[in-house]
Design a protein around this nucleic acid. Structure first.
Lengths: 141, 141
DNA sequence: ATTCCTGCAAATACTTTGCATCCTT
DNA sequence: AAGGATGCAAAGTATTTGCAGGAAT
């Protein structure tokens, strides 16, 4: 019954942090979310109250540790999501209502290779961000 | 000799704005820049002093008018660049020193089509953002 | 017991708003 | 002359920093 929680604690520890209540809450909250969340949304969403400053700090350290990924969408504050290493997914954002849907398989490797060859100033490519903008079914009507 | 300036004024007017000194400065500055700039960089870079508030307002209205494009890169404030409609280019960003280089040909059309077919919630795709992160030659050493 | 974390207060930085004046049209 | 645009002051948000007390190891 505590299995899930225990796993999270382990994740946190192996990243070099102490498994505290706020950090467990944050990870388990992000795990449940199915789209990236802003700092504010996280603060408001956590059932057990956690100070905003603490959320900023956790996100910052988790980002550095590679547990969390920052997502920058047009005209919005940065948002954050769990960085499951293998889960190379991206986002389609509705430009009207800001609804976010994931999509997978961006097949970006070829482009990365091409870009690297075409570059005079870069030695390596370590990551990418790729998002689509459009209209969701509701807003398109 | 005034040819260039005159063109810019025309661009501004056809977007529905008055061709004022600050707006001309901004456009001509962005034209010279070869990577996206933050609000602060613009304010500091304009030779003829323009109030920060005015820069915010110009960028906002130019963005709406489609003259300027907002670029959101990892962990940075938003940056802005001229939105030459045909110039569908993207950025490679050094994760250490934040140097930015452009690259072209992202060949994203196929991916867009695929994503749209795979989506249950989206009706149309109108744009995309695509950026690469890596290490520049200097920082890779 | 030690060291890391957290919360609170407060300082900074960023962005928006209101309004009187100036400048383009 | 009219109405949009700018600058300045100030309000509103967002984010960072400092530090004392609390919790995990």
């Amino acid at each position: 019954m505590q299995k899930e929680k225990k796993d999270l604690a382990e994740v946190i520890r192996s990243a070099g942090f102490r498994a505290t209540r706020p950090r467990l809450s944050l990870l388990s909250f992000l795990e449940k979310a199915d789209f990236p969340l802003s700092i504010q949304e996280i603060v408001d969403g956590l059932t057990r109250k956690v100070d905003q400053v603490t959320v900023y700090r956790m996100i910052e350290s988790f980002k550095t540790a590679g547990l969390v990924r920052e997502v920058n969408l047009q005209g919005d504050r940065p948002k954050y999501e769990l960085a499951d290493a293998e889960n190379d997914h991206h986002h389609i954002v509705c430009t009207k209502c800001h609804r976010v849907e994931d999509f997978v398989g961006c097949g970006v490797e070829r482009i990365e290779k091409k870009a690297l060859q075409g570059s005079r100033q870069f030695a390596a490519i370590t990551g990418h961000s790729f998002d689509l903008y459009g209209l969701c079914n509701t807003c398109a009507k």
